[in-house]
Amino acid sequence: MPVAIVDPLPAFRVGLATELTKVGFTVEDPEDLEAWLRDKGRRSLIFTAGEGDGHLRLLRRENPDLVIVALVTRLDPTAFGTYIKLGCHGVVDRAAVPRAILAALELAVFSHCAVPHEIAQKIVAHIPDSRVSGLPIEHIEWLRILAAGSTVAELARRVGYSTREMHRLLAKMYCELGVKGRTEALILASRHGLLLET
């Protein structure tokens, strides 16, 4: 697959081109980059992000087979999201080792996107955990009581069950939450803000 590299530093372009060539990519330096990018057919662009990046959507519309990887000076969730929304298939820190840029391009060629772990964690932090999102209010109340330091026997008396039945009900709830016991259940509930009184 032909690849064009756009970066202000010639040494950076040459170094990256060398790495890409080693694994079978054909690096091209077209005189008319815009025309080259608009040509139909599978081709890739690795570019250092900067001014005028808004035309990326237009390029992707004109050549839907174009694979784009953006190199950014500061990789954070905002930069990552911005360039993905603009139509890039991958976003990598420009200071990353060439192998990381190559990996992002290889994934992009196969319609996958590498997301740095730190950014992935921030993205999924907003997705509700299905284990706790459907937890009955009664079970949330049990967890709040346990978190306040009550024993199972005290919880049982408070909510109207025998101690034995309360142990059975809690074991069932722990199983549904996918945790091993009280401590893990309270950690999970705390992580999702269930222990806070509303």
Rank of each mutant, 00 (worst) to 15 (best):
His192Trp: 05
Ala11Gln: 07
Cys88Tyr: 10
Cys175Asp: 15
Asp76Tyr: 03
Ile145Leu: 15
Val159Leu: 13
His126Lys: 07
Gly24Pro: 06
Tyr174Pro: 02
Ile140Lys: 07
Ala104Cys: 11
Gly15Asp: 00
Arg191Cys: 00
Gly149Lys: 11
Arg182Gln: 14
Val159Ala: 14
Glu165Thr: 08
Val179Ile: 10
Asp39Gln: 10
Glu51Trp: 05
Glu51Asn: 07
Leu135Thr: 04
Pro128Gly: 02
Asp32Lys: 00
Ala125Ile: 01
Thr26Ser: 02
Leu186Thr: 02
Gly52Ser: 05
Cys88Met: 10
Leu56Asp: 09
Ala125Trp: 00
Arg144Leu: 14
Val97Gln: 13
Leu45His: 10
Ile101Asp: 12
Asp76Thr: 04
Thr198Arg: 06
Ile101Thr: 15
Leu196Glu: 09
Glu106Ser: 12
Met173Ser: 02
His89Ile: 07
Asp129Met: 02
Ala11Phe: 03
Ile46Ala: 12
Ile137Asp: 12
Thr48Pro: 09
Ser190Thr: 13
Arg158Pro: 12
Lys180Cys: 12
Leu33Ser: 08
Ile127Trp: 11
Arg94Ile: 10
Ile101Cys: 11
Lys122Cys: 10
Asp93Gly: 09
Phe110Gln: 13
Pro8Thr: 00
Val159Glu: 12
Ser111Arg: 15
Glu197Phe: 10
Pro10Gln: 01
Arg38Asp: 09
Ser190Lys: 14
Thr26Arg: 06
Ile145Asn: 13
Arg182Lys: 15
Val179Lys: 07
Ile84Gly: 03
Leu169Ile: 08
Gly52His: 06
Leu58Phe: 05
Val27Phe: 08
Arg131Tyr: 00
Leu58His: 08
Glu62Asp: 05
Arg60Cys: 02
Cys113Tyr: 09
Arg61Phe: 00
Arg158Gln: 15
His139Asn: 15
Pro30Ala: 01
Val124Arg: 09
Lys85Glu: 12
Leu155Trp: 13
Arg60Glu: 03
Leu196Asn: 10
Leu146Lys: 13
Leu177Val: 09
Leu170Met: 09
Arg144Ser: 11
Leu66Arg: 00
Tyr174Ile: 03
Ala185Leu: 05
Ala100Glu: 15
Lys172Gln: 04
Glu31Phe: 05
Glu19Cys: 14
Ala125Lys: 01
Val115Gly: 08
Val23Phe: 06
Arg158Ile: 11
Gly54Trp: 14
Gly87Arg: 15
Ile145Val: 14
Asp129Ala: 01
Leu186Met: 03
Leu9Ala: 01
